[in-house]
Structure formats: structure tokens, C-alpha cells
Simulated assay, not measured.
Amino acid sequence: MNAISTYTTILETSYRLFAEHGFDKTSMTMIAKEVGLSKPALYYHFSSKEAIIQTLFEELCKSIGFSSFFRIEAYTKDNFEETFIADGLQIIHKQQTDMYYSRILNQYQALGYRDPAYSLKLVQILEGFTAGFAELLAHGVSIGAIAALDVLTKAQMLTMIIDSMDNFMSYGLTYSYENIWTTAVKSLIKGDPA
């Protein structure tokens, strides 16, 4: 294995093991064995289990931020509603197709009770969604795709919907998430109250 693929394999394996067994019950020995490395070789890449947990968290945060799903520059007057719906559906599909996502995110939320740096970062991601939605909605108003509206309230509502769906999926509830998101966006585009 070369350095880059070994590093990636360690992170991918750790992601799975942490989701399956939790942070506390997953050891460096388990990770090394699953990857096919000696413990000293694993320690060459990561100085500790906590370093792996931190690196995974940073990678996870990059992958779930607002700009990972919504690209404001792609929105036009003609495609605004369709693109808004499609971009939100990407979030739902990502969680539905990654069987470890909910479990690992729950691990980080629990870790946030012991280490506020984790909970602070998760709150920042939610605030990033609110700011991103506000910017996207203001863009929609400026290009005439949607009527003027209370941008901040609607942005907060959309963030709450995204976060609630994330939580409901993590509990295994089989709601019609695609329809919920589509209905929320369409009511917003039409200017209906939320």
C-alpha cells in the first residue's frame, strides 16, 4: 500500500469500526488488524485513536456542510425550484445510502457532551446551513425566481427541516423524506407560510 491509500484505508476502516462498535470499544489493535497493518505502522500514520477520531470528524464535517450540496451559482430563474429540491434530496440520499453515517454522527454528538469542541463544530455546520439558505433565498429573490420573503425565518425553517430529517432517519423512522423536502421547498417558492 502506498502512503495515500493506506491513510485513506485507515480512515475508511476506522469509520466503519467506530460506527459498529463505538469510539470507546474500538481499539488501535482492531483498526490495525482490519487494515492489515502492524500497530507500529498504524501509529506511523496516526499518533493515537483520538487523532483518527479527530481526522474523521474533520473529513465528515467537510462532507456535510452546506456547500457540499448547494451551489448557489448553479441557480437560475428557470431552474431555481428544481435545483433547490434536487440539491436537498442529495442530503437525504447520502444518509440513506451510507449505512454508517447515522451511527458515526451519533458517536460525535455524544462525544460533544464530553468535549465541547465537537458540539461547537456541529452547531457551526447548522449555522452554516442557515447562512447558506439565507444567501440562496436572497439570490432567488434577486433573480426573480421567488417573491420577497422573510429570508432568515425561511432559512432557519429549512435548516430545522434538514436537521430533523437527519435525526428521524438516524432513529430508523421511515417517513417520506423526499416528499417532505419537496413540499417544503415548493411551499417556500410559492410564498406559502411554512
Rank of each mutant, 00 (worst) to 15 (best):
residue 4 I to W: 15
residue 6 T to E: 10
residue 6 T to L: 03
residue 8 T to M: 12
residue 8 T to V: 08
residue 10 I to M: 03
residue 13 T to G: 01
residue 15 Y to S: 03
residue 15 Y to D: 09
residue 16 R to E: 12
residue 16 R to P: 03
residue 20 E to Y: 02
residue 20 E to H: 04
residue 22 G to D: 01
residue 23 F to V: 00
residue 23 F to K: 01
residue 25 K to G: 07
residue 26 T to I: 03
residue 27 S to M: 02
residue 27 S to G: 02
residue 28 M to D: 03
residue 28 M to G: 00
residue 29 T to V: 12
residue 31 I to R: 04
residue 33 K to Y: 08
residue 33 K to P: 01
residue 36 G to P: 05
residue 36 G to N: 05
residue 38 S to E: 06
residue 38 S to V: 02
residue 40 P to F: 09
residue 40 P to I: 04
residue 42 L to T: 05
residue 42 L to H: 03
residue 43 Y to I: 04
residue 47 S to Y: 11
residue 51 A to Y: 01
residue 52 I to A: 02
residue 52 I to P: 03
residue 53 I to K: 00
residue 53 I to P: 02
residue 55 T to R: 05
residue 59 E to L: 13
residue 59 E to I: 07
residue 60 L to E: 13
residue 60 L to N: 07
residue 60 L to M: 14
residue 62 K to V: 06
residue 64 I to C: 02
residue 69 F to I: 02
residue 74 A to W: 12
residue 74 A to P: 00
residue 74 A to N: 14
residue 74 A to K: 11
residue 75 Y to R: 04
residue 79 N to M: 02
residue 82 E to M: 08
residue 83 T to P: 09
residue 86 A to Y: 08
residue 86 A to L: 11
residue 87 D to P: 06
residue 87 D to C: 07
residue 88 G to N: 04
residue 89 L to D: 11
residue 90 Q to H: 04
residue 92 I to M: 10
residue 92 I to N: 10
residue 94 K to E: 14
residue 95 Q to N: 08
residue 100 Y to L: 07
residue 101 Y to C: 08
residue 103 R to A: 14
residue 104 I to P: 09
residue 104 I to R: 09
residue 105 L to G: 08
residue 106 N to G: 13
residue 111 L to S: 07
residue 112 G to C: 10
residue 112 G to E: 09
residue 116 P to K: 13
residue 117 A to S: 15
residue 117 A to L: 14
residue 119 S to E: 13
residue 121 K to G: 04
residue 125 I to E: 14
residue 126 L to S: 15
residue 126 L to A: 15
residue 128 G to Q: 11
residue 132 G to F: 11
residue 133 F to C: 04
residue 134 A to H: 11
residue 134 A to F: 13
residue 135 E to T: 06
residue 137 L to T: 01
residue 137 L to P: 07
residue 137 L to S: 05
residue 139 H to K: 04
residue 142 S to W: 01
residue 142 S to P: 02
residue 143 I to L: 03
residue 144 G to Q: 01
residue 145 A to I: 00
residue 149 L to I: 10
residue 149 L to Q: 11
residue 150 D to A: 06
residue 150 D to W: 10
residue 151 V to L: 10
residue 152 L to S: 12
residue 152 L to Q: 14
residue 153 T to P: 12
residue 154 K to Y: 12
residue 158 L to P: 01
residue 158 L to I: 06
residue 161 I to L: 14
residue 164 S to R: 05
residue 165 M to D: 04
residue 167 N to A: 11
residue 168 F to G: 00
residue 168 F to K: 08
residue 171 Y to G: 03
residue 172 G to C: 05
residue 172 G to E: 06
residue 173 L to N: 11
residue 175 Y to F: 15
residue 175 Y to D: 13
residue 177 Y to P: 00
residue 183 T to I: 12
residue 183 T to N: 13
residue 184 A to Y: 07
residue 184 A to D: 10
residue 184 A to G: 03
residue 185 V to G: 06
residue 187 S to G: 05
residue 190 K to A: 15
residue 192 D to A: 10
residue 194 A to W: 14
